[in-house]
Nucleic acid binder design. Sequence first.
DNA 1: TATGAATGAGCCTTCATTCAT
DNA 2: TATGAATGAAGGCTCATTCAT
Lengths: 220, 220, 220, 220
Amino acid sequence: MPSMKISSLETKPPEIKGLPDDPRKRAKYLAIIEAALEAFSEYGYHDCPVSKIARKANVADGTIYLYFANKEEVLISVFQEKINRLIDDIEELMPTCANAWDKIEVLVRYHITTLGNNPILANFLQIQLRQSSVKIRQDIAGPLRKLYYLIEGFVAEGQKAGVIDSAINVAIARKVIFGSIDEVVSCWVLSRRRYDVTAMIDDILYILRRALLVKAAAEE
Amino acid sequence: MPSMKISSLETKPPEIKGLPDDPRKRAKYLAIIEAALEAFSEYGYHDCPVSKIARKANVADGTIYLYFANKEEVLISVFQEKINRLIDDIEELMPTCANAWDKIEVLVRYHITTLGNNPILANFLQIQLRQSSVKIRQDIAGPLRKLYYLIEGFVAEGQKAGVIDSAINVAIARKVIFGSIDEVVSCWVLSRRRYDVTAMIDDILYILRRALLVKAAAEE
Amino acid sequence: MPSMKISSLETKPPEIKGLPDDPRKRAKYLAIIEAALEAFSEYGYHDCPVSKIARKANVADGTIYLYFANKEEVLISVFQEKINRLIDDIEELMPTCANAWDKIEVLVRYHITTLGNNPILANFLQIQLRQSSVKIRQDIAGPLRKLYYLIEGFVAEGQKAGVIDSAINVAIARKVIFGSIDEVVSCWVLSRRRYDVTAMIDDILYILRRALLVKAAAEE
Amino acid sequence: MPSMKISSLETKPPEIKGLPDDPRKRAKYLAIIEAALEAFSEYGYHDCPVSKIARKANVADGTIYLYFANKEEVLISVFQEKINRLIDDIEELMPTCANAWDKIEVLVRYHITTLGNNPILANFLQIQLRQSSVKIRQDIAGPLRKLYYLIEGFVAEGQKAGVIDSAINVAIARKVIFGSIDEVVSCWVLSRRRYDVTAMIDDILYILRRALLVKAAAEE
DNA sequence: TATGAATGAGCCTTCATTCAT
DNA sequence: TATGAATGAAGGCTCATTCAT
């Protein structure tokens, strides 16, 4: 009996929700996601009341809580939705690539171009997403890891194929690649997008190519 | 006398305060900075009430406002204090460097080592600082730019000296260098520092060396 | 869509609320008004926390802000509600009046009697209301002006009808009438209502009659 | 012993201070009074921090508390100083007056003229003074009563001399006179002094003369 | 399922007052 | 006597979340 008492006093489990199966619910779920993307991007996570998301999604405040456990989960879900989409798109492009370096190049190019053409998403991913608590940052790590693995896979593949310097530490290479993209896009967003990021892609790739490719491949 | 009228009608300016001259005040100012660094690092900016900072600094809540206009200014001041210190330290090390690449190497090494040995500062700079609003992010940009210029200066110097590939875009190079450091340290902090970041420095520098140095210099 | 952008950049307007249409909300709005009247009267505007009003109205603190933009607006709304009610009541009595002087007499009598029978309202109007800032005092001026116009209208009417001395300045007459009422009620409230104000009405009217009426009308 | 404890727990007595004898202290006391008059008038009682008074008086915040028990006492002291001065001035003018009505006329004229020529004092007396708590309002009543008695004395004197209608209630007459002055000046201050109050004096006196004087005296 | 009114915990900030110097 | 740094209580207001309808 005491143990029951204790358990009834515990805060209820987080009740993780997700993309619903029912197509009508699905649509509303996605509408909230899109509204939240816009709202977070416009106001910033902490300065964006749930009511703003609800208004943008044309639902009542309470409805948000039928689809998401809390505000944090909304943030995380937006991220997951968007990062998975990005990863899927990138993976679809891979078959057209001649080799591992090509894949990295396409990934970098696609990532920057996508954000460069979608300032709201860029603002969300580079700035607002990071305003959240450490807990959220760690929840975000999961989906992000897929992107990490993708990049690391390409690097390893390149090394196996003799295109990328095999002395390079794969995990570090990934950090350099991802960190470069991240920094370039963040600077652009914080500059209030006063220039065209996509124009920088060739210069970034020039440096990354030098950084990773073996001499022969580089001269190709 | 008209100026009185005007000033009484204006909403009072945020009253930017700074490091006081009086040594006793100076000590308390710095004590609050240190307390805030710890507190922000522990709770995160948004989840850290001013009262926590006050308690850590052994002062009353109201005392914070004798030294800082508001909570935001505390955050920015912590950042300025720390980033300026980092930059000063790096600049002091420069005379010992043989060439521009050496300077970059020392900078990267010092930056990562410093944060690697100071988890609280690392957590603050990589995570908590970014939880703040866009407005703050832009206030932060100023002091950070000094670090940017330092790096860009080294790259340009290296190009002039024929050590660094002159085809490289200096601003992009800076973003690759800074982005790499940032990513490496952020991953480490988010991993709850389960490994030693400083152990990665050589691998990072290996990649950056490949990325930037002209062949001759690289083989040196 | 551009309007959205603009609105999101502007600091939000104070969002003036008012008597809601929905009858259930209406009831709560009025309940808060009554609670605020009591609370302000009991503690004084500045010494009355919003939480006291909420408690008296049997609502949560936050609920107040669903009906009023801020504490000031509560004060102003109480005043408007009460002064409009007073004016309406007075206007309803007018048809029974034989002439313009009668109207003034009824107004004075009704005003003093109403406050004399409603110490809480009297205290609010004569004392607590005036504890507010100049800004509020000026917001209050609007509804009050209706009462002013009423009085001035009666005076002018009396002059046209030859009942009131036409050499009298209408605006000044209003100030004498209103100022007399105000002073009489204020003194009574500040005396902690140790006597019966309504007993003074005849004496006041005696003086005002002398002040305003032409000889013939006075001797009537 | 317990009784001692209790008494030591009691809030210490208000420690009423006043105009000091020592002329140096006296000067500082008066300087604070003047500074407070200005500061209260400029910001309003509740929106005027003690530090503003101190700054205007060129003393330290703490110094205020060497001359006054607390902020309330400063307010009351300003009022006393000013109202006593007004009364003294009026009393000095009395010997020049031919009869009781003349005295009333001089009093009304002097009161309105003084405030009309001293907007800061007018704002203080008509608006800011009343923003204080009921407790203060009652402390103010004392000095004000002297003015009341003055007026009532003139009315009674006029009645005795057959100049003023003896059917008039003296206390009510005072309220009409004082209330009229008060209303006229208050309206002027709240109008942001967009017109000249002194221009209204003759119109006010015309009404008051009608209100009070016996026919014979009025036709004089 | 959806609503949106209601809740109430929580925090930044101000400022009257004190007291060590 | 004078200073002004320090205190800390207090309150207006926001907003994530709940729940009756």
